[in-house]
Amino acid sequence: MNAIGQSFPAEQAYDTWLPLLQLAAQEVFNLMLNCGVQPSTAEVDDQGLDNTAMVGLAGKLCGMLTIRCRTKSAAVMASKMLGVTPESAGHAIWDALGEISNMVAGNFKNKISGMADGCMLSVPTVITGADYNLHPLAVSSAIRTILIFEGEPIVLSLEIHN
């Protein structure tokens, strides 16, 4: 969880952020859920990814980090965090997914030199349902990766607004 010594801002630096984003997520799953996630290059059918957690970033880096997954995956995440069965996780699945997105965003920004102090995070929001469109008013770049968690896909995205 060391900071990477790269300057900011630099448009081309976004390319180097993908492995940092993946690492940030892997550390959160390893430490808080006691299980791994593996990056995948396989394409994912967005259908069924009906849980979306969002955390806003503001300051030196403006944007939005989102994590999308199936309800089944969110329930397993909550169960691993709470030590209960997925079936009994109940409403905690959204709380857990929001907290995971918050930790991934925080862990990611802490890995980029100069970002930890200059970038604030919003309280996370979780949307359920897949039938919606997101219209950010300014997006200059985006990083997207697919992670495999317990055999199911998770789509992790960072939209960068500046």
């Binding site: 550390e27 959160v28 808080m32 918050n102 930790m103 925080g106 862990n107 802490n110 930890a116």
Partner: peptide
């Protein structure tokens, strides 16, 4: 216990009266 792991936040918290600081994710 927070995701805000910057030195600035640590200093602010300790100055305000906190005695310790743990970054999320944690073990």
């Amino acid at each position: 216990i927070t995701t805000e792991g910057s030195e600035g936040h640590v200093v602010q918290a300790l100055s305000a009266g906190a005695r310790g600081y743990i970054r999320k994710p944690f073990t």
